[in-house]
Simulated assay, not measured.
Amino acid sequence: MNVQPPGFIRSPELVAFGVSYASDPDAAVQQVVEQIGVAGHCFVLVFVPDSLDHDRVAQALNRSLPKTPAFGCTTAGQITPKGYQNDALLLVAFPRRHFRCSSTLIHPLKPLSIEATALQARTLAERFQKTANWNRFAVTFADGLSKQEDILVAALDAGLGDLPTFGGSAGHGLAFDETLVLHGGQFHADAALLILVETDLQFAGLEFDHFMPTDRQLVVTEAQPEDRIVTEINGSPAAREYARLVGHDVSELSPRVFAENPVLVRNHDTWHVRAIQQVVDGQSLAFLSAIENGLVLTLGRGKAILETLEAELSGVGRNGHVPDFILGFDCVLRRLEVEQNQLVAEASRILSAHRVLGFNTYGEQHRGVHMNQTFVGIAFFSPGRADLS
């Protein structure tokens, strides 16, 4: 039985989902489990709002779904059938008829050995027996405050080779205080989880943002890479130089200013956002992605975020085939920009129309790169449509 809450015009047919706004963790879990049922699931993904006690959520899931692996994380917001939400417990159930999985917990993340982590990923893949004519991909969730995602993604890329990997960093609203991943029936800090998934469905990866590079460059002239803190840009105090370039005083720098004036780094022919988290001690800038001395950053200029969202989600299909649903990892800074420009209702309409389910992250991972202010996702199609990308 799959009693789903209202939201989508047409609900996904290939997965079940449950949403609860209950403030009590036990009641919330009971409601989402009633919506998805207890039988036939290969695994469930669980996205927890900052309003719920995560440990009680895990305990309730262990009682309600004792035979179903549950993976997930704390979030900076959820993407439900109604679009953007702040206080929703979201559970997505992947049925055994279409999915198989194997998982491992990577802990601790600090320090992280690239060689050992690559071996752990490679061993998991080798031991996960292949099913003829099924497709494979990997999903990762990582502690969003570990400052290790860049190294983690590089290690997983080395271990998994050409296997497509998609992921998001756990969040906790805008508190930036504690972020956790769910594996083995409990939540873990300083950890990441890797899930290998096999499916008989066709799927396509998504990755997009809404920024273009300008001609204004910022050279990191002094930094603390291990802490992702930049102390100097262009030979001047970092916060003051960034504020000058974007036309603000240091006192005016805020998540809104950072979201609307991102800095980009070039990787071959692709630009990725290196998001600024906050001002430190009135002089330095803390980042959400890797930085280093000598790194050349370029100030970004935004395009229309809603037009980009609609175009990218609409463009994932081919030959008239549209996804049954999209699993989405959307940066909290993108959502913050949407909120600050009073575009939440329209953005939520677009997400709902394209049947996106997922969460708002502290960072996104795709194709061996950790990035920010980006939407990363997996679009799933009905079986047998081999003409899809």
Score class of each variant (00 low, 15 high):
44 V>A: 15
43 F>L: 11
9 I>M: 09
40 G>D: 08
28 A>P: 07
42 C>T: 03
48 V>I: 15
28 A>D: 04
8 F>G: 10
49 P>C: 11
43 F>A: 01
39 A>S: 14
43 F>K: 04
49 P>S: 12
14 L>P: 00
5 P>Q: 14
12 P>C: 04
22 A>W: 00
34 E>W: 02
21 Y>I: 03
50 D>V: 13
8 F>A: 09
7 G>Q: 12
48 V>N: 02
31 Q>R: 12
44 V>H: 03
15 V>D: 06
12 P>D: 01
33 V>A: 06
13 E>G: 13
34 E>T: 13
8 F>D: 06
7 G>C: 14
9 I>E: 12
23 S>D: 14
31 Q>T: 13
19 V>S: 08
29 V>I: 10
33 V>N: 05
39 A>V: 13
14 L>T: 04
48 V>L: 10
39 A>F: 05
39 A>G: 01
40 G>E: 05
4 Q>M: 14
26 D>P: 00
40 G>R: 13
13 E>Q: 15
30 Q>H: 11
8 F>V: 04
25 P>E: 06
16 A>G: 15
26 D>L: 13
10 R>L: 15
28 A>R: 10
3 V>H: 11
22 A>S: 13
33 V>T: 09
42 C>F: 00
17 F>Q: 04
32 V>G: 07
12 P>M: 07
8 F>T: 03
37 G>C: 10
41 H>Y: 02
15 V>N: 05
27 A>T: 11
28 A>V: 05
20 S>Q: 06
24 D>E: 14
34 E>Y: 08
5 P>C: 12
43 F>G: 04
46 V>A: 08
4 Q>I: 04
29 V>H: 08
27 A>W: 00
7 G>H: 12
44 V>C: 15
17 F>E: 02
13 E>R: 15
11 S>V: 06
39 A>M: 06
45 L>K: 03
38 V>C: 07
32 V>Q: 08
44 V>L: 05
11 S>H: 11
7 G>V: 11
41 H>M: 09
10 R>K: 13
48 V>E: 04
14 L>G: 01
21 Y>R: 10
28 A>C: 09
32 V>Y: 12
22 A>D: 14
6 P>I: 09
19 V>K: 06
36 I>Y: 00
8 F>N: 11
27 A>R: 11
15 V>R: 10
13 E>F: 02
24 D>R: 04
33 V>L: 11
47 F>W: 14
34 E>S: 14
26 D>T: 10
15 V>W: 03
44 V>M: 02
26 D>N: 08
49 P>K: 09
40 G>K: 10
16 A>S: 15
33 V>H: 07
31 Q>S: 14
32 V>L: 08
47 F>A: 08
13 E>D: 09
30 Q>V: 00
27 A>G: 03
11 S>N: 09
28 A>H: 08
38 V>R: 15
11 S>W: 00
35 Q>L: 02
20 S>I: 01
25 P>N: 07
42 C>V: 00
45 L>E: 04
20 S>P: 01
15 V>H: 02
14 L>F: 01
41 H>Q: 12
49 P>R: 08
12 P>V: 03
42 C>S: 15
25 P>F: 08
49 P>T: 08
24 D>P: 01
22 A>M: 07
5 P>A: 15
25 P>A: 11
22 A>P: 00
6 P>K: 13
4 Q>N: 09
40 G>Q: 10
25 P>Y: 06
9 I>G: 10
3 V>S: 14
40 G>Y: 05
19 V>G: 02
17 F>P: 01
